[in-house]
Design a protein around this nucleic acid. Structure first.
Lengths: 154, 154
DNA sequence: AATTTTATTGATAATGGTTTTCATTTCTAG
DNA sequence: CTAGAAATGAAAACCATTATCAATAAAATT
């Protein structure tokens, strides 16, 4: 996979790959978590010692990245939007989420993805035909209690 | 199915089945849509000519209903929470959603549900074992363009 | 019935994540 | 160099949802 496969997308749209934008992509590419806009903003200040990037810019950048398909947007039910890098057009590392409703912990799983994918493809085709829908993406999430929260909340 | 299978749940929890609560359940039971709290609030005033129920009560009632499993809560990405009756403990009319990202239209589909259910059950078991998660529910949604929006947005 | 307790309610204010506004700065094309 | 476009951050606005609180209604107890 090319290192910065998104460069072309920026150029094509007449957008500039500025340092705030690169920093935000960098943060996303180095975490396995699902940071919120504020998480990213705080990381910028703490880890990158960058006091010059405003929260507004973080939100704006994320919106651009989502629209370009570089970043996926998720709602795990805790009142804030969370983001994660889509990891390229080849879709490698495609996964779904397991969400702990107690502590908010998220587990990315890739198990069963192949079977899921096969079923989803068939379902998408069927639904597209029946409802004349042009399906662009799907969302699968499981909600429950993680190991810790099972013990602490009997 | 019993007509008001939720009565017992209210009694059991020491809660009262007041007229605002009944009205809200009634609205939910008579729609195939996925109203937001404000939608329900407006319906109360318009269709039920009831000026006495405040928005706060709608939110509070919905929270109770969700906690009791009488109502499901959804986020379709338009910034407001949407609600729908779970339709009883037997789970009849179990369905998933097709969401138009352009106009927000929601289609409930029950096609492929059986196959999905079979896969989901297997997946849940596998995930529960591997990650020691106690899974309570799942979410499956497809996003795309509905028929109208495909034509109007070429 | 009268009284005490508990649950419910709605108006209002507060919260908090996200967006808008706007004046300023930075980049780029010509 | 210069004009135009894009990007930025601070502050204000937005808006769905929640908390506060005093008032009311229903149930439990006397």
């Amino acid at each position: 996979m090319r290192k910065c496969w998104w460069r072309g997308k920026f150029e094509g749209a007449g957008l500039r790959l500025t340092s705030p934008r690169l920093a935000i992509i960098d943060i996303l590419s180095k975490t396995t978590k699902h940071p919120s806009a504020e998480d990213i903003y705080l990381t910028l200040r703490q880890k990158y010692n960058n006091d010059n990037i405003g929260l507004t810019t973080v939100y704006r950048t994320l919106e651009i990245l989502v629209n370009m398909g570089i970043v996926y947007k998720f709602d795990f039910g805790d009142g804030r939007t969370r983001y994660e890098l889509s990891e390229g057009p080849d879709g490698f590392r495609h996964h779904h989420h397991l969400v702990c409703t107690e502590c908010g912990r998220i587990i990315d799983y890739t198990d069963f993805i192949d079977e899921e994918k096969e079923l989803l493809d068939r379902t998408e085709k069927g639904l597209a035909e029946k409802y004349h829908f042009q399906i662009h993406k799907h969302l699968i999430q499981f909600y429950g209690l993680c190991e810790n929260c099972q013990l602490n909340k009997p």
